[in-house]
């Protein structure tokens, strides 16, 4: 049986891995390679690293650090941040990543998804969508441009049609809060698209993971819970398996 996945999703900033709260106030998690080594030893199912120096400050993609992390990572590694061209995809995969996560460029140019999928396959393209709720309505948000007047569900449908392999769905409002995933948002997405959805933002307890699985999440992404609570990846997986959601135990 296909297992659900538990995926640390962390940010790369100033050569450190960090965790943000509602896309601001960064807390340092640790040195990238040391942290990846720990994740690998703890048998998390995948790893997502988003380079915010590249995405926010237009710095070149940090291939040196991606290479170092990839060398420690014997599980799937997704890298995002500042990926705008097919050359960028070659660069990131060449450094050892298995998938790329794209965000701003896909909003501007959804055909970029198809370009990547044609060359590298759909499985290589994770489309990241950041969402904020304003006056009861969900809106697409980017760190650089703020709130956009785009309906997230329409965007998700377009991404699926262009050949996206997975969607990384982040609630900006919940991110780093430990208040639980936005299951209302999740439900809208799982009813709209048929590709796997990685829900992100808000997991503070295993129960939050359970709520997301009950609402159709394929994979659970998180960061805060692994670093600033008592819960380990194993404890979370064990708790969720008790509810008959299959996870991998080596």
């Amino acid at each position: 049986m296909l297992k659900h996945r538990l995926i640390p999703c962390v940010l790369l900033k100033d050569w450190q891995l960090v965790k943000s709260i509602q896309f601001g106030s960064f807390r340092t998690i640790g040195h990238p390679t040391a942290t990846v080594r720990v994740y690998n030893a703890r048998n998390v199912d995948e790893l997502i690293v988003l380079d915010i120096d590249a995405s926010l400050n237009n710095e070149p993609i940090n291939t040196e650090i991606i290479t170092d992390m990839a060398n420690e990572c014997f599980m799937p590694l997704t890298i995002g941040g500042g990926i705008k061209t097919i050359e960028d995809v070659y660069t990131v995969l060449g450094a050892g990543a298995d998938k790329v996560s794209i965000n701003s460029e896909a909003i501007k140019r959804p055909s970029f998804i198809k370009e990547i999928a044609t060359i590298f396959g759909s499985q290589c393209v994770v489309c990241s969508i950041d969402i904020k709720k304003v006056d009861g309505k969900y809106r697409v948000f980017t760190k650089k441009e703020g709130l956009l007047d785009i309906d997230p569900l329409e965007l998700a449908k377009e991404y699926e049609a262009q050949g996206a392999g997975e969607i990384l769905l982040t609630s900006v409002d919940r991110e780093g809060t430990t208040l639980g995933y936005d299951t209302e948002l999740l439900k809208l997405f799982t009813h709209t698209v048929h590709i796997p959805i990685i829900i992100n933002g808000g997991m503070g307890t295993p129960e939050h993971g359970l709520e997301a699985l009950q609402n159709g999440a394929d994979a659970l992404a998180a960061a805060y819970i692994f670093h600033f609570t008592q819960f380990t990846p194993l404890m979370i997986k064990e708790a969720l398996s008790k509810h008959r959601y299959p996870f991998r135990f080596i």
Binding site: L2, K3, D45, G165
Partner: peptide
């Protein structure tokens, strides 16, 4: 859901040297 992405079990069919030291029904990344 397509693609089939994630960890799934491999069930042995015939013994193989490729599987030395690996338990039946172990999970692999697809």
């Amino acid at each position: 859901k397509i693609p089939h992405v994630g960890w799934n079990e491999m069930n042995f069919h015939t013994p193989s040297v490729l599987f030395n030291g690996i338990p039946d029904h172990s999970n692999f990344y697809f």
